[in-house]
Amino acid sequence: MLVMMNWLIWNCRGAGKKNFVSFVKDCTRIYNLGFVAILEPRIGNFRADQVIKRLGFECVVKADPVGYSGGIWCCWKPSVISIRVINVSRHCIHLHVDPNNQGGWFMSIIYAHPQESLRLSLWEELKSYKNQLQGPWCAAGDFNSISCESEKQGGSPANRAAINRFKDCLDYCELADLGAKGPPFTWQRGELLERLDRVVANPLWRSIFSSASVTNLTLPPSDHCGLWLRMNLSNQASP
């Protein structure tokens, strides 16, 4: 029997908005989501806990924002998927996913700092993590980076040095872009469009989930597209 696993990774640009909870609940129902990662919620502590509780997910791990900057929430249904938290840092949550007790795989949910000089520590974190793990690995989220000049339209010329540093990190970690259906750019501000959000994975993960797909969803409350990641569990096996 084929079982499809549906994940949403989304920079919502603020989870304190009036209709945020109902909007996420609608997405959960429409896309049959078992896991939702919320990036840049812009609220923390007690207020964040109140909003998260209303989303209806039994399991949650979060990296609180610093003021209004950053933040990651990972929410999932244990009846759908088994997840163990490995590490939480300001810009990344590392998870181990084992849906059917066959060895599982690693998942990193990313929110990279919008300032390029402050992203470098995240690139180093991912390189260090790569040296420690063995097995299938996927990373998804808002990398706040483009991997080539064609992923930017409008605004000032692309920063070639920043592109190279991002590509060097992905190459070192053996993380290749899964591509995406839908809009080619995932973020827009006025006439400036960029592909900042993506899903990448190492060769072992891609061989196991060879039919995995990503769709960029236009979700109007935010200026970022959500990443709808679909994986067929019948393909998942022990590495």
Rank of each mutant, 00 (worst) to 15 (best):
L2W: 06
V3C: 08
M5T: 01
N6R: 07
W10G: 03
W10H: 01
W10Y: 04
R13D: 11
R13M: 14
F20E: 06
D26E: 14
C27I: 01
Y31F: 13
Y31G: 11
N32A: 07
L33T: 02
F35Q: 04
A37S: 08
I38P: 02
G44N: 04
N45W: 11
F46N: 13
F46L: 13
R47G: 10
A48D: 11
D49T: 10
Q50M: 14
I52V: 15
K53V: 09
K53A: 15
G56I: 04
V60Q: 14
K62F: 03
A63R: 00
D64F: 03
V66A: 15
Y68K: 04
S69E: 09
W73G: 07
W76M: 05
K77W: 08
P78G: 09
V80Q: 09
V80L: 07
N87K: 14
H91Q: 15
H96A: 10
H96I: 05
G103F: 01
G104R: 01
I109S: 07
Y111T: 07
A112S: 15
H113V: 03
Q115C: 10
S117G: 11
R119S: 09
L120G: 08
L120A: 15
W123G: 13
E124Q: 14
E125D: 10
E125H: 13
E125Y: 14
K127N: 09
K130G: 10
N131W: 02
G135N: 10
P136S: 13
P136Y: 02
F143L: 07
N144Y: 04
N144C: 07
N144A: 12
S145E: 15
S145F: 06
Q153A: 03
G154A: 00
G154P: 00
S156Y: 09
P157H: 05
A162G: 12
I163Q: 11
N164A: 15
N164M: 14
D171Q: 13
A176W: 08
G179T: 00
G179P: 07
G182S: 01
G182T: 02
F185H: 03
T186H: 08
W187H: 08
W187I: 04
Q188L: 09
L193W: 10
R195I: 03
D197M: 09
R198F: 04
V199Q: 07
L204C: 13
L204V: 12
L204A: 15
W205V: 02
I208A: 10
A212T: 06
P220S: 14
P221E: 04
D223Q: 03
C225W: 02
W228C: 13
N232R: 00
N232Q: 07
N235H: 11
Q236F: 12
P239M: 08
